[in-house]
Computed example of a mutant assay.
Amino acid sequence: MTLGIGIIGAGPVTQAIHLPAIAGLSDRLRVAHVMDVDAATAAEVAARAGAAQSTTVEDLLADPAVDVVAVCSPHPFHAEQAQAACRAGKKAVLVEKPLATTLDEARAITEASRSSDVPIVVGAMHTHDPAWLAAERAWGDLPETAHRVRSRIVLPPNARFESVATQLHADPVFPAPSGGPAAAVRNAILGLAIHNLPLVRRFLPEIEQVGLVRALKPFGYLLTFQGGGRTAELVGYLHGGWREEWTFEVWGDDGELRLDFPPSYVRAGSATAELRTAEGTRVFGPYPDNGYTGEWRHLAALATGAEPVRYGMADVAADLAYALDLANRAADLELLQGATA
């Protein structure tokens, strides 16, 4: 069975990441409909995929060829559109991260999914990476014994990867961020750190205190936080060069874990995971598919009833709550630091 995908929002992530991932799974998925508020963008991107096009969510949801919906619009629209896809009785929904912008919105999406029995997958691609899933099956009690976590996301601006991955139609121009360092830190956490925060939460489930916050220019953050006797260090930085590093590391009493992820826009397969224990070192990956392909495979399996949900709504809502809590605490500390400087 080939499932028809309806994509809401035809921006760079859709063009450079999702379209190639779906094309690689043509035995089970095809793009059936592309919606974007910009008619020219919708038409151009739909033509690439041989799909129908529209400028309204209502038209996309009314298309009988659409079995599965991908919500790839700006963050403030996720909640409304995800709920509408559930009410329309689609077979499954992918919502790009973050799931929503508030906990009330997350609760509304959860209720819509429950009442309609439509499964939802959040596009936290690293939680679907084959190397992460393989390491998870092997790491034993590391989540219980971990005492330090570190996440580093150091990348060139997305536009450099986008231009290599595809020829973008109507490359968007985003307004310069406003609101000072506190707003910059919050935006960077919800826009960049959020990629790794579900991984961080697995090993440091409760945030008790944010210890250090720095906003990095032109876009980024440096912060530390603690909880349950554990410490996390997060660095995110978009810079002007070509150097990239996307790593996640955990240290525990009897083991260590390190994952090296390729940049999102580079189709170079999965991460490589290295698990070190007293028994030796085990390496998982790299596998041919990355986390984006992994989430689409899982979505197809959910839509056909071939797999149970990997991450339930309670789990993905908890991921959002964790991200919002960290972003708010970090912004508050940045404001306090600015006031006392």
Rank of each mutant, 00 (worst) to 15 (best):
A306Q: 03
P74T: 07
R282K: 10
L204A: 11
V164A: 10
H239W: 04
L204Y: 10
P286N: 13
I120Q: 04
A65N: 02
G338V: 09
R230I: 09
R297N: 14
H298Y: 08
P172N: 13
D67E: 01
V213R: 10
P12F: 06
V250R: 03
A82G: 15
A39T: 00
P172V: 07
A100C: 11
E249M: 03
A339Y: 10
L335C: 09
L257A: 05
A124E: 08
A135G: 06
L336V: 13
T14A: 06
A317C: 12
L60A: 03
T41R: 15
A321H: 00
L25M: 13
S116L: 06
A215Q: 10
H298C: 12
M125I: 12
A170S: 15
A318C: 03
D129P: 15
E162I: 03
S116G: 10
R152G: 01
A146W: 08
G269N: 14
V13Q: 09
H239F: 05
L212V: 15
W296T: 13
E256K: 04
V235Q: 07
H298K: 10
A184V: 03
A301Q: 01
I109P: 11
A52C: 07
G89Q: 09
D117K: 14
V149N: 07
V149P: 09
Y322F: 06
P181W: 10
L335G: 13
K217A: 11
L238S: 07
L216I: 12
S73A: 15
Q81K: 12
E80H: 13
V154F: 11
N158A: 03
G6P: 02
V66I: 03
T110M: 10
A85W: 14
L61Y: 08
T101Q: 02
G211P: 07
T277P: 08
Y311P: 12
D59L: 01
I153S: 14
G240A: 03
P263V: 00
I5S: 00
P177H: 08
E162K: 01
T14Y: 04
L60Q: 03
L103H: 07
D315E: 15
A47K: 02
A21S: 15
E162A: 00
L103P: 05
P156K: 06
D289R: 05
W251G: 04
L99M: 11
H33W: 01
Q226M: 11
